[in-house]
Amino acid sequence: MHWKIIITTFITIFLAELGDKTQIASILMSSKTDKPLLVFIGTMLAFALVTILGVTVGTVMARMLPLNYIKTGAAITFIMVGILILFGKI
């Protein structure tokens, strides 16, 4: 097993998700419903599905496109989203 990949992925995703809108939504749902276990289960199922989709799309893209194209596409997408946020379009 490649522990380095697992640990690096865990740390990256953990830090990226801290304080994001998904975590805030989970906090709000838990406080509104007073059912933290059910909110936890729903949140984990949603994260699992989103992660499966992300890994699947990433795997397919990696097989179809050179890594340079994927990196360039990701960079352009992030820049475009940043510009849209800057001008209040998102």
Rank of each mutant, 00 (worst) to 15 (best):
Y69I: 13
A75W: 11
A62C: 02
W3T: 09
M44V: 10
A46Y: 07
D34M: 12
Q23S: 01
H2G: 11
I70A: 01
G58H: 04
L53E: 09
P36Y: 05
K89Y: 04
G82V: 05
L86G: 08
A16P: 03
L28R: 13
F87K: 05
G58V: 00
A16D: 11
I24T: 07
G88Y: 05
I7A: 08
I27G: 01
T56N: 01
Q23D: 03
G88F: 01
A46Q: 07
I90C: 11
T9R: 09
M61P: 01
T33F: 13
I79T: 15
G82R: 00
I70G: 06
L28Y: 14
L53C: 08
F87W: 02
A75F: 12
R63M: 13
M64A: 07
I85G: 07
T8K: 12
L45W: 09
G88L: 08
G54C: 00
I79N: 00
F87S: 05
L37Y: 11
L38A: 11
T43C: 12
L28A: 13
V57I: 14
N68E: 14
L28N: 14
S30H: 08
L65Y: 13
I24S: 05
K4D: 14
L28G: 08
I90P: 01
T59C: 09
L38C: 03
A16W: 07
A25D: 08
H2E: 11
K35P: 00
L86R: 04
T43D: 08
V60Y: 02
L49F: 12
L37P: 00
I13G: 00
L86V: 07
A74C: 01
T22D: 14
K89W: 12
I76F: 09
L86Y: 14
L38K: 07
M64H: 06
F78S: 05
N68G: 09
G54S: 00
W3V: 05
L18Y: 10
V39F: 02
T72E: 11
G54A: 01
L18M: 09
I5R: 12
G19P: 07
D20M: 10
I13W: 13
T33L: 15
I83L: 14
I24P: 00
I85C: 12
A16Q: 11
F14D: 08
D34C: 06
R63G: 14
I27Q: 11
F47R: 03
F10K: 04
T51W: 10
A62K: 09
I79Y: 04
G58E: 00
F47C: 06
P66C: 02
M80N: 04
I90L: 13
Q23A: 08
N68T: 13
E17S: 15
I90S: 05
A48M: 15
F40E: 03
K4R: 15
T59L: 10
T43L: 08
T51V: 00
L15H: 10
T8Y: 11
G73L: 03
G82K: 02
T12S: 11
K89E: 03
K21M: 15
G82A: 14
S26R: 03
L67N: 09
M80I: 15
A75G: 07
I76E: 00
V39M: 03
P36N: 03
S30Y: 03
